[in-house]
C-alpha cells in the first residue's frame, strides 16, 4: 500500500492565490484610495497581528496570556527611543523593536512560566503592569503622560501615510507567513501534537518546555512589531495606551469570533471586528459590553468560531497546517479523508 502526504488542497491553493491577488490590489491602494482608508487599515492591521499572536499562544501553545500588551508597549517604546534618540528611521526601527521584544521575552518567560493555567494568565498581566509602571517613571519618554514621535517630522504627511500603509501591509503578510510557516514546520507539528496531548507528545520526544518557549518568543516578536507599527502610525505614545489590557481584550474577541486554533481565525475575526467597530463604536459602553457578551456566548456555544463554521461548510481548510496522510488509491485532494478526529464533515 502506498501513501502520500498531502500538505495542501485545491481549495487551500485557491485561497492562497486569491489572497496573493488581494495583496497586489491592496498594495496599489495609495494610488486610488482615500487616506482615511489607509489609516483604518493600519489600525486594524495592528489588532490583527496582535490577535494572530494571541491565537498562536492560546490556540496552539495552550498559554492563555492576558499580558501580551507588555511586548506591544515595549515594541512601541523601543521604536520611539530608536527613532527619537538613536536617529534610526522609525520604519527601520519596527523590526528592530520586534527583535528587542523577542529578546525581552526570554527573561520574562522565566517568571511567567512558573505559573500554570489561569494563574499564568494573571501573572502575565502583572508583568505587563510592571512594564507600564516602570516606563511611567522614565522621564525621558514623558513619564505617565507619554511623548510624541519626533523622528518623522520633516517628512510630508502623504509620504508618511503611504509608507506607513505599505509597511503595515508588509507586516501583516509577514506575520501571516511567519505563523503559517511556523505551524507547518516540524516545530509547528510538534506544537499541535502538544496541544492535542502533552503527555503523548512528551513520550514522542517532543520537548514541551522548549516548544512553549519558542511560541512565547515568536509571539513576543509579533506583538512587538504590532506595537511599533501602531505608534509609528499614531505618532504619540503613553504608558496607558501602550500597555493597556484592552489590546488583549480585543485580541480575545477577534480570535474567539474568528475561531481559535486556526490560522484564518484572527483574519476573519479582525474583519468582523472592523465592521462592528465601524457601525457600533458610537454606542460606547454598550458596544464594549456587547463585545464582552459576544465573546462569552461564542465560547459557551460556538467555540469553533466563524472559521470553523466556514471550514465545515466548505469541507476544506483555507490554510491547512497539518500533513494529511492519504492512502492509495489517491482521490481528489479536496475530498481526501483526514486522519484527524476533529473532522466530522
Amino acid at each position: 500500500m502506498t501513501a502520500t502526504v498531502i500538505r495542501s488542497t485545491r481549495g487551500s491553493q485557491a485561497v492562497i492565490a486569491i489572497a496573493a491577488a488581494l495583496c497586489l490590489v491592496a498594495a496599489t491602494l495609495p494610488l486610488w484610495g482615500e487616506p482615511s482608508w489607509m489609516r483604518e487599515f493600519v489600525e486594524i492591521a495592528c489588532y490583527l497581528i496582535f490577535a494572530m499572536m494571541w491565537n498562536l499562544l492560546a490556540g496552539y501553545g495552550g498559554m492563555v496570556s492576558v499580558g501580551q500588551q507588555a511586548f506591544f508597549g515595549l515594541g512601541g517604546y523601543v521604536m520611539l527611543a530608536l527613532g527619537n534618540f538613536g536617529g534610526i528611521n522609525p520604519f527601520v526601527a519596527i523590526p528592530l523593536a520586534a527583535l528587542v521584544a523577542a529578546l525581552a521575552s526570554l527573561p520574562v518567560s522565566k517568571l511567567a512560566f512558573r505559573l500554570q493555567g489561569g494563574y499564568f494568565s494573571i501573572g502575565t498581566w502583572v508583568i505587563a503592569e510592571v512594564f507600564r509602571l516602570s516606563i511611567a517613571n522614565v522621564a525621558a519618554v514623558g513619564g505617565g503622560s507619554g511623548t510624541s514621535l519626533t523622528a518623522l517630522r520633516g517628512i510630508s504627511r502623504s509620504t508618511r501615510e503611504n509608507t506607513t500603509y505599505w509597511v503595515a501591509l508588509a507586516c501583516v503578510v509577514a506575520s501571516l507567513a511567519l505563523v503559517y510557516l511556523f505551524l507547518r514546520s516540524k516545530q509547528g507539528l510538534a506544537l499541535q501534537a502538544i496541544r492535542d496531548s502533552e503527555v503523548a507528545a512528551e513520550s514522542q520526544g517532543v520537548g514541551v518546555a522548549r516548544m512553549k518557549l519558542a511560541v512565547y518568543v515568536v509571539a513576543a516578536f509579533g506583538c512587538g512589531m504590532a506595537g511599533a507599527l501602531y505608534f509609528v502610525s499614531n505618532l504619540r505614545i503613553s504608558p496607558d495606551a501602550a500597555f493597556g489590557v484592552n489590546w488583549t481584550a480585543f485580541a480575545i474577541f477577534i480570535v474567539m469570533i474568528g475561531g481559535i486554533g486556526r490560522i484564518e481565525g484572527p483574519v476573519i475575526g479582525a474583519v468582523v471586528f472592523w465592521a462592528l467597530n465601524k457601525f457600533f463604536s458610537d454606542y460606547g459602553t454598550w458596544y464594549q459590553l456587547g463585545l464582552g457578551l459576544l465573546a462569552i456566548l461564542m465560547t459557551l456555544f460556538f467555540r469553533e468560531g466563524l472559521g470553523g463554521f466556514v471550514h465545515r461548510r466548505l469541507g476544506f481548510e483555507m490554510l491547512p497546517t497539518r500533513r494529511i496522510l492519504q492512502l492509495a488509491p489517491p482521490a481528489a485532494p479536496a475530498t481526501a479523508s483526514r486522519l484527524t478526529p476533529e473532522v466530522t464533515a
Binding site: V66, I252, T285, G292, I296
Partner: peptide, 23 residues
C-alpha cells in the same frame, strides 16, 4: 482540562461588569 473557556468567559464577564457599572 482546558483552562481557556473559563478564562475567556470570566474575562468577558469582567468587561461586561465594567461597562455595566460605567453605564
Amino acid at each position: 482540562k482546558d483552562p481557556l473557556p473559563s478564562l475567556v468567559v470570566t474575562f468577558g464577564l469582567s468587561i461586561v461588569i465594567q461597562n455595566l457599572l460605567l453605564e
